[in-house]
Simulated scan of single mutants.
Amino acid sequence: MNTRAFRADVLLFITAAIWGLAFVAQRVGMEHVGPLTFNGIRFALGAVALIPLAMTMERRRVPGTAVADRKRMAVGGIFLGLALFIGASLQQIGLAGPQLAEFGLEASTAGKAGFITGLYVVLVPIFGLLLAQRPGWGTWVGASLAVVGMYLLSVSADLTISFGDMLVLVGAFFWAGHVLLVGKLSPGLDGVDAIKLSTIQFAACAILSLIGAVATEEITLAGIFGAGPAILYGGLMSVGVAYTLQVVAQRDAQPAHAAIILSLESVFAAVGGWMMLGEVLTTRGMVGCALMLGGMVLSQLKP
């Protein structure tokens, strides 16, 4: 492995760690604000954090480079933001322990949410069947492993699943749809236009989340300040820093390496939940996590 590829792998490892630990921040933030308030401010910060990157890349754009159609980018960014809003809202509500407890419902944990959300990696190639794509054998074996792992992780002995886990699972389908939509919109975009598209989608998600928060949640300055560290991590680190690292790293990363390393996001979520929140997985749950991770990696290595 050359130096550039090794550096790319290190940056991707850091990216996976930042994203995984974001599940801990999302869980902690729910002790102070509602899920839509958290997402609204978080994605607004994320959009703002990407503006300097977009401006820097714009100044370095090679003269004569084709510029993406602004109308197509704006419309595409709004649709991406809508998919992101639904997926992120379901995930965040699923992690909202205090809010769900008021209705006698059980929330997901940071570790479980990380692995369940990661199922979008397996769902994407399966959804590709609707686009006349033909997934390889790795996709089907990976999906089978992931389903068994999901059962062991989230379905109890009496065949019940927590409300929070169910919401996160439904959200994974929207994350998969979001990835497919990105695949339709991103061809032909250079780096700077891709960053601009992301900025638009984060802004759209923030606006939709804040509208929902104003309509359904109580927003207080005390709550926002209380959730401040978690919101800052979720917005600046998870979106601004991690996204920038990913863009830089994937210029030199080998696709197989990138797929495996980024799949570790769910592992970091579980480790972070254990170290910072005292979350403990049973032996059954750990076996489920191992099967899910294996399924995610296999679906990427043999697409």
Rank of each mutant, 00 (worst) to 15 (best):
A215C: 02
V182N: 15
A172N: 12
A176T: 07
G223K: 01
V170S: 00
A176C: 09
K184W: 14
A203M: 09
G188I: 12
L210I: 06
G188E: 12
I195K: 09
G177Y: 05
G212R: 01
L210V: 02
G188M: 12
G171F: 08
E217S: 00
G188Y: 12
L197S: 11
L197E: 14
I224W: 04
E217T: 02
F225L: 14
V170R: 01
G223A: 01
L208W: 02
A176R: 03
G228P: 00
L189E: 06
A215V: 08
V214P: 00
L180A: 11
L185M: 15
D190I: 08
E217L: 01
W175R: 08
V170L: 13
A206T: 06
L169V: 04
L169Q: 05
P187C: 08
V214A: 15
A194G: 15
T220I: 02
D190V: 13
L208V: 06
L210C: 05
S209H: 07
G191C: 00
A172F: 12
D193W: 09
A213P: 00
L180F: 10
L189H: 09
F174W: 12
S198E: 13
A206Y: 03
W175H: 08
Q201P: 07
I195G: 07
S186H: 08
T199F: 09
G223I: 05
C205Q: 07
G226A: 03
E218F: 00
T220N: 02
I200M: 10
E218A: 07
A222N: 10
L180N: 11
F202L: 15
V179L: 11
S186W: 07
D190N: 15
V179Q: 09
H178Y: 14
L189I: 07
A215L: 13
D190M: 03
A227D: 04
F173R: 08
E217M: 00
G183K: 13
I224E: 04
F202R: 05
H178L: 10
G223N: 01
W175N: 09
A227W: 01
G226D: 03
G223V: 03
T220C: 05
A213M: 02
T216Q: 00
V170P: 03
A206F: 05
S198P: 07
L221N: 04
A203L: 14
I200W: 09
A222E: 10
A215F: 04
V179N: 06
V179T: 12
K196Y: 08
F174L: 10
V170M: 09
V214L: 13
S198Q: 15
L185Q: 15
I219C: 03
F174T: 11
P187V: 10
D190F: 03
I224C: 03
T220E: 06
T199P: 02
F174E: 09
S209V: 04
D190G: 12
L181K: 09
Q201V: 08
G177F: 11
A172I: 11
Q201G: 14
D190R: 10
